[in-house]
Every structure is written in C-alpha cells, then in structure tokens.
C-alpha cells in the first residue's frame, strides 16, 4: 500500500474531454475541477454536502462534488456547468433561468441547473412539486425559489421564448445568447 496522501492516477471524461490526472486521493472532485482543471463554474457553498452549490453530473446523476473522492469517479463521465451549453447554443434550462429570473447572484445557479438537468433527463415533464422535490437539496438565498421552478417548468415545456412578450424582450433574450457566445 502506498503512503497516505500519495498521488494516484484517475481517468475521467469531463464535458466530453478525456483527462488522465495525477491527483491527491484526498482532493475532492470539487477541488479537482476547480483547481486542477480550472473549471471554476462549479461552486462551493458549504463544503459538507449541505447546500447543493457544487452539484455536477456523474454519469448523468446529480452528485455533490464536495463529497466525491477522485477514487470514486475513476472512469466516470462528468458534466459541469461549462458543459451544459451545446457549443454556442445555450441549453433550454440556461435560457429559461436567464429569461424568467431564475437567478440573481448566480452562485447557486450552476448546481441548480445541473440538478434540474438531471431531473429533466429522467422526467421530461415534471410537475411543480416534482421540480421542488428534485431541487430540494439546492439552497438559494436570493430568489425565493419560485422563479427557478418557473424556469425549469418553462424549459421542460419548451416555452422559454413564449415568455418574451414583444420584440424588446425577445431582443434582450437574444442578447443573452449573444453574450454567452462572446463574453465581455
């Protein structure tokens, strides 16, 4: 057996890219993503599995990266917030959160979006109660949650664009998409 803390090799696919990493066994997947891979879109809120901010998808399932050890994800496929959009095209959930006020400070948003994606991948037409239950482990201090439920519901129904009442609002929604392509 190797000594405590000695590094180990872990193979991972993150957002479709393969990585072979030499990692400390005690660095959580959260640290690995943020610090080794510099994918800082995944957030930390509590460090103890209590807030959901660090939610990522592991083989399609919502998992808390602050509790995951590298040795547990060897060979797995991870999706982080950086991998949610399809290239320059935002995921319907991303558009819905932007259009319907599903975010304010935005810090819980990456985890919230991934938990919502895990839900829609298994249940494409959830009820509002099912949305709340699926996201219940993700805390938000800004929104009061209602707009997040609205956003997930709209994304599921494919009704995001319908939220725009006129040309000005449609233009603003288009600006979100454009900004996603060319961050300032």
């Amino acid at each position: 057996m190797s000594g405590a803390g000695e590094k180990q090799v872990v193979r991972l696919t993150v957002n479709g890219e393969d990585h072979e990493l030499l990692v400390r066994p005690h660095a959580t997947v959260l640290e690995l993503l943020r610090e080794d891979l510099r994918l800082t879109g995944t957030k930390h809120g509590c460090e103890l599995g209590e807030c959901g901010a660090c939610t990522v998808l592991v083989d399609g399932q919502a998992q808390l990266s602050c509790l995951l050890l590298p040795g547990q994800v060897d060979g797995a496929c991870l999706t982080t917030i950086e991998g949610l959009a399809d290239g320059p095209v935002l995921h319907p959930l991303q558009r819905a959160f932007a259009a319907l006020g599903g975010l304010q400070c935005g810090y819980c948003t990456p985890g919230m979006l991934l938990a919502a994606k895990a839900l829609l991948d298994t249940n494409p037409t959830p009820s509002r109660q099912q949305i709340k239950e699926a996201l219940a482990g993700n805390l938000c201090r800004c929104t009061g949650y209602a707009a997040i439920v609205d956003a997930v519901e709209a994304a599921a129904l494919g009704a995001v664009e319908a939220a725009a009442q006129d040309a000005v609002e449609a233009a603003a929604l288009g600006a979100v998409e454009a900004a996603a392509r060319t961050p300032r």
Partner: peptide
C-alpha cells in the same frame, strides 16, 4: 420591462468569475 439580467449569460454558463 421584465428583461433578463445583463450578466445572465455569464451566470448560466459558469463563466462569471466570483472572488474565489
């Protein structure tokens, strides 16, 4: 008007950089 936030794109893609 009920317009999206100007930084919404950066926030939904994880591109926005908070202090940490």
């Amino acid at each position: 008007r009920p317009l999206p936030r100007v930084e919404a794109a950066a926030k939904v893609t994880g591109a926005i950089a908070y202090a940490d």
